[in-house]
Amino acid sequence: MKALALLTTLITGAILLYGTMDFPAFGDPQSPAAIHLSAYFIEEAVHETHVPNLVTAVLGDYRGYDTMFETVVIYCAGLAVVSVLRKKRSKTQENKS
C-alpha cells in the first residue's frame, strides 16, 4: 500500500515536472501572468482609487466579490466549528450558576 502511494506520488511529480518545461523562467518580466491584467492594475489603480498599496486596491475594489465571499467563507468556517464542537455546560455547573 505504501509502495503504491509512493509510486503514485513519484508519477504525479514527474508529470508536473514535465509540465514545467513550458512554464516561464523565474522572474521573467514578459511572462504571461505579467502582461495582461496586472499591467492595467499597476498603471491605473492609483488614479482610480487613490490607494498606493496596489494589493489593498485590488483586494478591496477590483476583486471585491472575491474578498466578500472570502469573509463569508471564514464566517461559515467559524459557524461550522462552533456548531460541530460546542458542548453545553454539564448539569452540575448549571446548578451552581
Binding site: E48, T49, H50, V51, T56, A57, G60, D61, G64, T67, T71, I74, Y75, A77, G78, V81, V82, L85, R86
Partner: peptide, 27 residues
C-alpha cells in the same frame, strides 16, 4: 472608492479576529 476599501477592511478585520479567537477557544 478609497474610503469604501477602508470600511470594508475594518469589517474583514473584525470578522477574522473573532473567527481566529473562536477557532482556538473551541478547538
Amino acid at each position: 472608492r478609497s474610503f469604501g476599501i477602508f470600511i470594508v477592511e475594518v469589517g474583514v478585520g473584525l470578522a477574522v479576529m473573532s473567527i481566529m479567537a473562536a477557532l482556538f477557544w473551541v478547538l
